[in-house]
Design a binder for these strands. Structure first.
Lengths: 342, 342
DNA sequence: GTTTTGTGCTAAATGCATTTAGCACTCTCT
DNA sequence: AGAGAGTGCTAAATGCATTTAGCACAAAAC
């Protein structure tokens, strides 16, 4: 079967085929208000256009309008976490529903590549830019000043700009609230990240999460058992801290984990001592990564709403809501089986 | 600080500022071969161009050339698995290094959205299309015939087309080989997916993975213990099968897991019986998802090379290697701590 | 001294959709 | 009947980079 190289159908083709001028066809197909063209002509042009399968050439439209109906998304790193994926999904969904497409680039974790990526995007004339940061411990962002409307997701910069963040100011309190509802008298928090407190500018999410938690804890009747600080937030760290805690004789009614990876280690340590989350004690976590559903029992976790954040960023951009504001998005508690008395 | 709306610097601006014609400037900046322009003029134009910060307008270039230096990537689903992310990373890396940008879209798991997404891409005049499938149990792909150069990644269609696949024809044999090297006498495979065999067209990767494994197994001296078929490939399935296996008195020297999620369940079941992977017996898996590094001990796994697959797809597209061939990419064995005698 | 060859450069056309200015015609009103 | 308003439509300009055809001049060749 020979693939006959079909020449693109242009506006001129439609005009000729329908016996009208290009101007008329353009006006009709774009439903330009305030123009007067006979119903008959309108009908005819529409018919011809669909019959020929006319699609306006995006390059020509962009050239004329200076708009591309394209948004740029530059990400810290797409790999490793589920977060970038979810953010992309949110962005794509919202952009598609508003007839925009998305150009993507990645800095591969190297901040210095940011400038290059932005230049690329500028060159391609995107209508707006979304800068996504997966690693919330952002350093100096080095965002070059741009004319482009820009929204930061999960990141904050020195200079004021529009940004979308998870509502970590409330997430810690929400966790404590849920622990209280579970009927617990005592709780262990496993655990804060070493050094995080020292530099709240660098670890804004983490600082807020734990700040809000600490506040809620002192306002509660809960007995807080021990003080567990972790080197990093991997399963090993959670495993070691929990093992140590149990060895020291602590037996909390509930454990709040810094994130799901830590919770995984906590589960392992508990299993070794024959303790079952959800029946012997409650375990609650943050982030709601995919492993939360892999654990046995499945882990209740306070979700990082990356998809919603991505969608919101698109919304702000397209609605021109570009005041330098931090938009905070609620972090929903995803109930599964690791809490007592659901 | 007032943001002065800077008009874009165009070729005409450079031409005027350097006292040359647009034609000359264009030729100089594009290093057109076979043209004769004085070294002095060349120098001057280049200087002026950089000074003014001239960047050609992509829309205008596209309009003229019919090329956009943009590739389209349409994915099954970006969320859930790490695979899409890695594929995007590979695509981005290769595309960037060859001065192309990437437009992305997602069908959100709905095959019928594929046609719509392709139309969108066509409309934006991408130079080539990459269709990525995360869910290897692809159904009818419903890929509309396109004029566009297209490469399928991790998917095959009825009609012959260029595709990039993991080399599952060898992955099973590679696993068996490694188990033999570990000194094992007996092995359990946990486990094949129920129904997969019935429809090899629908589950091509899985069929190949197990076909190659079965072949290698009969050619080996290994004793194969039991026959474990799973409903699905989640941790629960691996947990249940392993528990059953141990209850039935089997005690293999090595376990080959269908994938890492299954391996996680296997680990849980082994832990309950006090069996430690890497010391009491070997565990080997497929895919190398992120959880492989979360497990204790860390899991050795045969990696699905999605990043390389994405990069290769870009390469094929840009090099015009579009014969209907299945390109198979080696699946490397990632050694960690779950195999005895590394 | 005239033709040929070569050099350095430019005007104008091209790709395609959108928009502005305005033409030609018919009604309506006085 | 002539002015004015309204209707239906079109020619041409615009945005920007690239490419083709070719101009004007100088040097070399016969």
């Amino acid at each position: 079967m020979e693939t006959h190289k079909v020449k693109r159908v242009t506006l001129a083709d439609v005009a000729e085929a329908s016996g009208m001028s290009k101007a008329a066809v353009s006006m009709i197909l774009n439903k330009k208000p305030g123009t007067r063209l006979s119903a008959e002509a309108t009908e005819r042009v529409r018919a011809v256009a669909t019959e020929l399968g006319y699609r306006p050439n995006a390059a020509a439209q962009s050239l004329r309008s200076g708009k591309t109906r394209t948004l740029g998304f530059i990400s810290d790193q797409v790999t490793v976490t589920r977060f970038a994926s979810e953010m992309i999904t949110g962005i794509l969904r919202e952009a598609e529903s508003r007839d925009h497409t998305v150009l993507i680039a990645e800095t591969f974790g190297k901040p210095e590549q940011m400038a290059e990526a932005i230049t690329q995007m500028t060159h391609r004339d995107v209508d707006g830019l979304i800068l996504g940061f997966m690693d919330s411990r952002q350093r100096d962002l080095k965002i070059p000043r741009t004319e482009l409307p820009t929204v930061l997701v999960n990141g904050i910069d020195e200079s004021p700009c529009t940004s979308v963040l998870p509502n970590e100011r409330e997430s810690g309190a929400k966790a404590v609230q849920r622990v209280i509802e579970s009927g617990a008298q005592s709780v262990a928090v496993i655990g804060e990240l070493k050094n995080a407190e020292k530099n709240p500018r660098i670890y804004p999410s983490i600082t807020r999460r734990f700040g809000s938690m600490r506040q809620a804890l002192v306002e509660s009747e809960l007995e807080v058992l021990g003080h567990w600080v972790l080197e990093d937030w991997n399963p090993t760290d959670g495993y070691e801290a929990t093992t140590r805690m149990l060895a020291e004789g602590y037996k909390p009614d509930a454990i709040i984990c810094a994130n799901d990876r830590v919770a995984m280690g906590v589960f392992q340590a508990l299993a070794e001592k024959g303790l079952a989350p959800g029946t012997d004690l409650s375990v609650l976590s943050f982030d709601d990564e995919i492993i939360a559903t892999y654990l046995r029992p499945q882990l209740s976790s306070i979700r990082l709403p990356y998809e919603e954040m991505g969608a919101m960023a698109v919304g702000l951009l397209l609605d021109g809501k570009l005041e330098p504001v931090e938009h905070e998005i609620d972090m929903p508690l995803i109930e599964r089986d690791s809490m007592k008395s659901n």
